[in-house]
Amino acid sequence: MSAVNNDDKLVIAGHEFNSRFILGSGKYSVNLIKAAVEQAGAEIVTLAVRRANSGTENIIDYIPDNVTLMPNTSGARDAREAVRIARLAREMGCGDFVKIEIMRDSKYLMPDNIETVKATEILADEGFIVMPYIMPDLYTARDLENAGAAAVMPLAAPIGSNKGLSSKDFIQMLINEIDLPVIVDAGLGRPSQACQAMEMGADAVMCNTGIASAKNVSLMAKAFGGAVKAGRQAYLAGPGRVLENGADPSSPLTGFISE
């Protein structure tokens, strides 16, 4: 992409979004979600089916109508459980988007890439818009592309860690090689980190803890929204080079060429 244009949309399975910031809802007081959505300008909000499944307190009621819901399958330990939770989300009226989260380890909550590919195959066949959360791995991403995923969502760092782009080099490979939208998820704790992911060429970023753990949630949501826009614009503008060694060599190695 060579020029900034006003029609720069995020397109996922034919659905267009103006915002490239996706908000996670898991760690908020529900009454803060609306403000965070507005301040960050988010158009997609994730929510755990296991939370939305509550009879007395319905998170969905707190999410503005014009926002697309992306239910996630957290709590699933294998493909079979993720498929069941996704189907339940659809029955609950959460739409066709589903974020696949499969964890078989309660300590680090790392996604199980192999089971995620299996679940993606099944759910894509059933017409879901499948958004798999993965460890950034090129082979997995290619398998997901073949399985019918609508995007890939590699993690930047361990979930909840606010550590930023620990897996930067591996995410860059996905950005370079995978034709699906690459949405950087998990571990982004500062707006600057979200901005950096966008500068690298990520199509969108997602954040929950980074905002939820801030002292002023809605102000931090606004900061993330601004950072994502800035990062996207920088990417589209084509960043200038960074001189890693501090200077341009005054006697270039190729100076000997005479013709």
């Binding site: 908020y28 007081s29 529900v30 939370r51 499944n53 009879g55 307190e57 709590g75």
Partner: peptide, 16 residues
């Protein structure tokens, strides 16, 4: 809990 800024949750679980 709400008065203390906490978020009481009745369910965060799904039987699968």
């Amino acid at each position: 809990l709400e008065a203390e800024g906490m978020q009481p949750v009745m369910n965060d679980y799904i039987y699968v």
